[in-house]
Each structure stands twice: as C-alpha cells, then as structure tokens.
Design a protein around this nucleic acid. Structure first.
Length: 502
RNA sequence: GGGCCGCUAGCUCAAUGGCAGAGCUGUGGACUUUUAAUCCAUAGGUUCAGGGUUCGAGUCCCUGGCGGCCCA
C-alpha cells in the first residue's frame, strides 16, 4: 500500500556515506558552477594526440602550447598548493593534469579538492608541460567537471570478484585494462574473419533468428511467441538450413556471423547465446573447409597479436601456425584404447571399453554415438594443439555426406584446440532423397520425446529438391575462437554474458 | 539434477559460540612535483534473507536466494 499524502522519502537519505557525499558534491556543482553534466567541453586534442605530439618533450619543460583535453579521473593526489590527477580516455590513453595555486587561484584549487572525485569526467585547459619527474602533463588554467560520478570506483589494485566483473562489466572495463583489451581483441578477430572471407569472395548474409522450425543442429531451443501470427517461434539454434537455401539459390560462397541460442547448461565454456560463423562453399568439401578454417584462425591470430603464436593470459604460448595435425576419429580412438576399433566395431565391445574407464552409457546410444563419447572422454582433453578429427559415423551426422570411400562414415571434421571444439565442417549432403530419409528419422526421434531432435523442415527439403550444388560447409564458434586466442573463459570473451537476476 | 565451498563496510578480505575488525576508499587537517604519495585525526555495518538452538550466533542447525568448483 502506498501512502499518497506524505512525500516519498528522499532516496539519498538511505545511501551509504560515500554516495551521499558525491550527491552533495553534484548539488554543489549545480549551484556553484552551474552544471555537473555540461553538454560538452571545448576539447582541442585527445589524450593520445597530446601524447603523440609531445612524446619527445624533455623532463621539466614547458612547451608553450595550450591544449584542452578531457578524460575520466582515475588517479588523484592532492597536496597543499599543487594537485595531480591522471585522466584516462576511452582508448585507454592516460595523461596527467597538474593544478597549481599560482595558475588556477586559491578558490578554484579549493573547488578541485572539494568537488572532484576519482571516477569523475573532467575537462582541463592549460599548457602542455612535463613535470620534474618527466610526466607529460597539462598545467591547468581552467577546468570543469563534465560528468560527476555518484558511485565510487572499486579499489584499483585489488581484483574485482569474478561475479562483480561479469555483472558490472562497465566497472570492470573502467578498472581493468585486460577487460578493455578483450573488447578490442574480439572486434579485431571478428573483423579479421569478415575480411578473410570477403577476400575469398564469400558473401555475408543474415538469416532468420526467429524460426518456425528449428534445425541445423542438435540442441534444445528457446521458445518465444509471435502475437501477430499467434504461433510459437524458436530462436535459432543454427543458421545452417537457411544458408543452404541461399546456396541452392546461387549464393555460391556465403557466410553469416551471428548469434545462436541454445537452451542448455551455462558453464565456463557454454553460454546460452553464442556467436557463430557458418560458411558454405559450392564445389568445396571438408578438405577445402579445413584449409579455410585454418587460414581464418591463423589470420585472426595475426590480426589480434601480430603472430600465429599467441600468448595467453597465463603467459603460455599456443602455436597456431603451419599445417595442423589431422587424424581420424577411429584412428585416434584406437590409439587411446590401445586396440583397433572402427565404425564396424560392435556396440557391446565399445560398451566394455566405456565400462572399463568408468563412463556412464546411455542405452539409447548406438555404436557410433558410443564411439564419439569414448573419444570425448579419452582423447579430447589432450587435444591442446589445433587438431582436425575426421570421418565421423553416419549415425551421429544426419546432415553430412557419406564418406566417398569408407562406408558407414561421413565426411565431417571437428576442430579441437585447448581441449575444446572450435569448429566443425562437412562435405554437405545434397541428395534430397537421402536428406529426407535422414530428417524423417530425426523427426521420429523427436516424436519419441528427444527434445534435441529436429522437426521435419519441409521447406528446406523443397529447396534441396531444386538442387544444391556439391558444397563444403563450416562452422566456428566466435567465443571459442577468442578463448583459443586469449586462453580466457567464455564469460571473459563475451562483453555482457547472461547472468541470473540479482 | 547431485555433491562441496562461499556470501561480513563503497572495494578486497579478517574475526575459538563471548565488545564486528584491517587495508584501500571516504571525510577533516598538513604538504608546490605526486606516480598504489606520505603524515595526523575520523566516519562508515539489516554480517545475503527468513526461521531455529543458546544466557549469548557473523560463527551451530533448517529453509530459501545468489555465486564458484566438481560430477551427471
């Protein structure tokens, strides 16, 4: 129940002291200087421009030039008659401002000490000089608060808790250079992917996020609702079926970089929304896609770090250069088991291996799925260097062309690095009759309650019946790529990852 | 879904069942060359929420919330 007659309690009354103090400073700025949030500041140079222009200015020298600069106060040291502040620009460049009694006068010096806090945005105008310690500085004549911060910054030299970093990324970005760097690293990597694909005549398209039927992968979808159509829609789990429609229509080299949504677990390597590159190339196959994937990653590494050898946050190096190791699924699994297994190995024997290593076996798994599970358990954690794992069983890859030489296998590879899957590619299945058979089988699984199985997409099958050229298709996780390039967890690579409500 | 660990000042963290603390931050003061400045003084708490045991609970028990790790 709301009491209408009494005025609401001033929320400021209930604030922690430090926020109350900052609000009072804001009020004083409004009253005494007219504004705490002016429309701008007559800036003549960015901090980076000043740093570049006066890089050679010797210690304890006055340049004779006046500049007006802006930045967030990230460091402040006030003494009796001389104050120092470090300003930082959005690009991370820092520059010192110095306020001396003889330049700004007693009143404005007192104002500075009284009203300016760590975290405020300010503009300062004065001569560009170097301090006695050689620090490039603006010796201030006039200054203004351009945006008063009402919340204190966290302690600069203690790491924020993991949770605070993710929930308040804006604070993380202010206090942690690596967080700012990740934003730019990610942008550089994504830009590199686009440039590399454009260089190879791939056309970028955007296909539906909202789909009537979700398909192209095995995953549980998010469901939403269209009021206009009065029908449920799915957030896409993959763009695959639309990109193939585009190839049918003659977009021979096509790609999309966009988000997929999977209504599944959230942990250090899984986000419910994740960015993905998918590319299709008419008259390509899984070999041309392997070359493409390798070049995309190597060019992204160079774009991000200048070398195909990337250095991770913990200091370890990862060499992404050269040709990459290429193995077959059953070859590398046989190696791990110490005995030869193949796609024709009976399920019972594979189940024995699973039991031996203490793996839980789902009775619904066929021999192909069982082999893949064994591979994931025994082999994947050790795949640190980039490795193509080729030739998966037909059983688990319904949208993949059968192997041109080996019955029961498909022309599919998964690319592993640092023990996780970075990408996957197929020689695409383009026979519409076989495609329909396999999709019908999947739909029957769905009817038995397998939420991950695909429903039958008749429009996709109709498109295929018009004839899709032979093609290679490839998918790569963008967040995973950033993990490979930086060695960080997925929540660090995503600027604003989904978190539970506070 | 299961198990374990955590949640205390703005931030990072202490505190045998017995007065809820430190550093940084803040506030007041000193200091015209600081670089995580220094010195003096000082403020700041619904200990995640609710319930229970107890003379007494941040601490023990129960329920819930949020987070992390491991497992499925």
């Amino acid at each position: 129940m709301t009491e209408q007659t009494t005025p609401p309690i001033d929320p400021a009354d209930d604030l922690p002291e430090q926020m109350r103090v900052r609000r009072e400073k804001r009020d004083r700025l409004l009253v005494e200087t007219g504004d705490a949030y002016p429309v701008g500041y007559p800036r003549t140079a960015t901090l980076a421009e000043i740093r570049a222009r006066y890089a050679e200015l010797p210690t304890d020298t006055a340049s004779g030039d006046t500049a007006a600069v802006t930045g967030r106060v990230i460091f402040i040291r006030n003494t009796g008659k001389l104050c120092f502040a470090t300003l930082r620009d959005g690009d991370g460049t820092e520059l010192q401002a110095m306020l001396s009694l003889d330049r700004v006068g007693a009143d404005r010096l007192a104002d500075w000490k009284r009203l300016v806090d760590l975290g405020d945005h300010v503009g300062v105008t004065g001569e560009v000089i170097t301090s006695r310690r050689g620090e490039l500085s603006v010796l201030v004549d006039t200054w203004a608060v351009t945006a008063k911060a009402l919340r204190p910054l966290p302690v600069a030299h203690k790491p924020l808790s993991e949770e605070a970093r993710v929930r308040q990324r804006y604070v993380d970005l202010i206090v942690r250079p690596q967080a700012r760097q990740m934003v730019r690293t990610r942008a550089a990597a994504v830009r590199s992917l686009r440039d590399s694909l454009h260089d190879r005549s791939f056309v970028e398209v955007e296909t539906p996020m909202l789909q009537l039927i979700h398909g192209g992968a095995a995953a549980r979808p998010f469901v939403t609702h269209s009021n206009a159509l009065d029908t449920d829609l799915y957030l896409r789990i993959a763009p695959e079926l639309f990109l193939k429609r585009a190839v049918v229509g003659g977009i021979d080299r096509v790609f999309e970089i966009n988000r997929n949504f999977r209504n599944e677990g959230i942990d250090s390597s899984h986000s419910p929304e994740f960015a993905m590159l998918e590319a299709y190339e008419a008259y390509g196959d899984y070999d041309t896609m392997a070359t493409l994937a390798r070049q995309l990653v190597q060019e992204a590494a160079v774009a991000v770090s200048g070398s195909t050898v990337v250095t991770h946050a913990d200091g370890t190096e990862l060499d992404l250069g050269g040709e990459w190791r290429s193995v077959t699924l059953f070859g590398v699994l046989s190696e791990a088991l110490g005995e030869e297994v193949s796609v024709t190995t009976e399920r019972a024997r594979l189940a024995q291996y699973a039991e031996k290593v203490g793996m839980a076996v789902d009775p619904k798994w066929g021999p192909g799925k069982l082999a893949e599970e064994l591979f994931e358990e025994l082999v994947v954690p050790g795949l640190r260097e980039p490795t193509f794992v080729r030739d998966y069983p037909e059983e688990t890859s319904p949208l993949t062309r059968s192997h041109r030489e080996q019955p029961g296998l498909t022309e599919k590879w998964d690319l592993y690095v640092l023990g996780f899957e970075l990408g996957t590619a197929y020689s695409e299945l383009v026979d519409p009759v076989v495609q329909r058979e396999r999709l019908v089988a999947q739909a029957q699984l769905a009817a038995r309650g397998d939420a991950e199985a695909m429903r039958l997409d008749e429009d996709f099958l109709r498109a295929m019946e018009y004839g899709m050229p032979p093609a290679g298709g490839m998918g790569m996780g963008i967040d995973r790529l950033l993990m490979a390039l930086t060695g960080l967890g997925i929540r660090e690579t995503i600027l604003f990852p989904l978190v539970r409500a506070e």
